[in-house]
Simulated assay, not measured.
Amino acid sequence: MNESQDRRLEQTILELLGRRAPTASICPSDAAREVYEGEDDGWRALMEPARQAALRLVAAGKVDITQAGRAIQPAEARGPIRIRRSR
């Protein structure tokens, strides 16, 4: 993963959230699919980088990550997460 792609994932997360209702959330896979430039399921290789991009955005105070509808700290994240605008 390169720095350019990391930044693109971060920007894509923010853009996707900007297109949705203020209370809506997205899955890291939404950003991975948007950034991946291919027709196959190669976007899956971007899943962990997308999660890491979300964690960087949490640290910057721009987004929250959630599980079961509640905001959690990155250290608590186990399994699937959602990303929403910070509240």
Rank of each mutant, 00 (worst) to 15 (best):
N2M: 10
R7C: 11
R7N: 15
R8Q: 14
L9T: 01
T12I: 03
T12H: 06
T12Q: 09
I13L: 05
L16Y: 05
L17G: 11
A21C: 08
P22M: 07
S25C: 12
C27Y: 12
S29K: 03
D30K: 05
A31Y: 01
E34R: 14
E34C: 14
V35I: 02
V35L: 04
E37P: 11
E37G: 15
D40K: 09
G42N: 07
W43D: 06
R44C: 10
A45Y: 12
P49W: 01
Q52R: 11
L55F: 15
L57I: 00
L57T: 00
A59T: 03
A60V: 03
G61S: 08
V63C: 05
D64K: 02
D64Q: 06
D64A: 06
I65N: 00
I65R: 01
Q67F: 02
Q67S: 10
A68F: 08
R70E: 15
R70N: 14
A71N: 07
I72N: 07
Q73W: 03
Q73G: 10
P74G: 08
A75G: 14
A77L: 01
A77W: 00
G79Y: 07
P80V: 03
I81M: 10
I81L: 06
R82K: 07
I83L: 02
R84P: 13
R85S: 11
S86Y: 09
R87K: 13
R87C: 13
